[in-house]
Amino acid sequence: MAKTCWSPPSVADSQSERPTPGAGETLLRVSGLTTKYGAISALRDADLHVNTGEVVGLIGPNGAGKTTLLGTIAGLLAPDAGTVVFKGDDITGAPSEQLLRSGLSLVPEHRRIFVDLTVEENLKIGGFTLPKADRPALLDEMAEQFPVLREKWTTPAGYLSGGEAQQLAIGRALMSKPDLLMMDEPSLGLAPLLVDVVFDLIDSLRASGRTILVVEQNATRMLAAADRAYVLRSGEVVAEGSGDELLARSDLFDTFVGG
């Protein structure tokens, strides 16, 4: 996957690309993305795409560049090279507040919920970009989808447990009615039982037709839950395939345990 030379594909190219058979059209296409922190390249020449209706996983060891990739797509980091095309528009380097309005929502690493705000307020702020009239219906929808949250509706979010907080973070991201939901390490720091909850949630979101891009360290679970996945290592995409294909490749797992 890692190429030695890089030529940015034009927007027209990516639009004319045929969609993967059996899936929706290409919603997000990342080409040749390179992001540096000072002198080091945290991400080198990464390519990936997400089709409508897919759950795509991004796996790899700590420090492989997964979070950097997501952050760059979401406009939190500025790329040094490459393009991000979303729904046919080049959104490379656009600020995060603008991306949300175009339908791209991120559940950040460590959840980053507003601990002093109540559960309801957290959800409301998730729907900040929506017309006022749309919010009550969506709030009801979230209350229905996340019964745990409904019970603690007026509790400050700082009092939620890790699993509840993660659901809140996801609910908050869903409040903007995103076309593409991105999650950064949703199982981070959760007890095994709660990890199950998160993956069940991802399954149910897929069933309801959401398009999701998930960065996850829990590779086995992620591959089982994803339609397709990319493997990152040392800032480069080193493998791509369906969940089952990648699960079968034992060589990739040595990447993780470092054998």
Binding site: L106, D116, F128
Partner: peptide, 23 residues
Amino acid sequence: MFGLSLRAAAADFDTARLMGVNS
């Protein structure tokens, strides 16, 4: 909504921007 965005921005400016709050 304005008050909410103000409190959110005061608590965590980056995440508030991620929610679409215009800085």
